[in-house]
């Protein structure tokens, strides 16, 4: 009887767990394998624009039928050999890093202030952080164009105040990309930081002060180490999508703002070279898997520590 119940219980557990696994299999693993397959094929002018990986070769003269698997590694070799891709990857990492650091520097004080605000005010303040999400992302980026362009809000303000005399354009530069991306990803930094800072017991700071620790030192020795999981989570949430970012650099960046997302788009739509585009995507994915795994590892350790 008990064994039967246990068997039913195992079945039930298996069924429940199967749903998310099935989802991941269908919508993550299968597309990944398709893209991976394309990345190993050859570009052809056809519909679809790549050669099949597996072919039946029927040689009637020899009377043989062969199953041919052609793996074309040249797409990946091209990624390593062509400066364009290496530079695009490096530049993407640089922009993502700058964005992450800017988000951290702006987001940490914000999250700290909200976490230390009166409980009744925290909800509305968090609401304000999330509020921009209610407007379309594209519209917000277009708004930044209006702010940053020559004769835009910032330029007019600078000229009016007499700080500059000639028109001054921030738009279409790396700076505009940094500003736009920091703006876009800031909530992703604030939310996890707020979650860890809000959870922190304020008596720990009292204890530090009681033991003779000055406030700034208490911040460095108590608050900062305890908010490390939030810093890591927030940084990864900003860094990972930033590396592959396409829309913001496309709209705000200059012609020389080279990012891997743009390269990918170009290969796919302008050059119609699906295999190379897929190889770029796979390389980007592998490149991002490492930080994701670090993230998982830290989260696992944190969960263990809390038990």
């Amino acid at each position: 009887m008990i064994n039967r119940l246990r068997r039913i219980g195992l079945w039930g557990r298996g069924a429940v767990l199967a749903v998310p696994y099935l989802w991941l299999l269908l919508f993550f693993l299968v597309p990944f394998l398709i893209v991976f397959g394309i990345s190993l094929s050859e570009s052809v002018i056809a519909q679809p624009p790549y050669a099949p990986l597996v072919e039946w070769l029927v040689d009637e003269d020899a009377g043989t039928t062969k199953l041919q698997l052609l793996l074309n590694l040249s797409n990946y070799l091209r990624l390593g050999g062509d400066d364009l891709y290496v530079l695009a990857y490096l530049n993407s990492v640089k922009i993502a890093l700058v964005t992450t650091i800017c988000c951290l520097l702006i987001g940490y004080p914000m999250a700290y202030a909200i976490a230390r605000a009166e409980p009744a005010k925290r909800g509305p303040l968090m609401m304000l952080v999330v509020l921009p999400f209610w407007t379309s992302f594209l519209i917000r980026i277009y708004a930044w164009i209006g702010i940053l362009k020559a004769n835009g809000v910032i330029d007019n303000l600078l000229q009016w105040s007499g700080l500059t005399t000639a028109p001054f354009e921030l738009l279409y530069s790396d700076w505009a990309v940094y500003i736009g991306m920091t703006y876009c990803y800031l909530p992703f930094m604030v939310l996890p930081l707020y979650a860890t800072l809000e959870k922190m017991d304020p008596t720990l700071l009292e204890a530090a002060a009681d033991l003779g620790c000055r406030p700034w030192k208490a911040f460095l020795t108590v608050t900062l180490p305890l908010s490390l999981p939030g810093i890591i989570a927030g940084s990864l949430l900003v860094f990972i999508p930033s590396v592959g970012e396409f829309v913001t650099p496309e709209l705000l960046g200059g012609p020389d703002t080279l990012m891997i997302g743009r390269v990918l788009w170009n290969e796919f739509f302008a050059n119609r070279d699906w295999p190379v585009a897929s190889a770029v995507a796979i390389a980007l994915l592998l490149f991002l898997v490492v930080p994701i795994m670090i993230f998982q590892h830290v989260q696992g350790r944190q969960a263990e520590a809390e038990r």
């Binding site: 008596t203 009292e206 204890a207 002060a209 009681d210 003779g212 620790c213 108590v222």
Partner: peptide
């Protein structure tokens, strides 16, 4: 006189041990 300059120490009800 702020807490960190007082000649007193306190044992907190929650103990307030630094978890890290």
């Amino acid at each position: 006189i702020p807490p960190y300059e007082r000649p007193v120490n306190m044992m907190f009800q929650s103990y307030a041990l630094f978890p890290h």
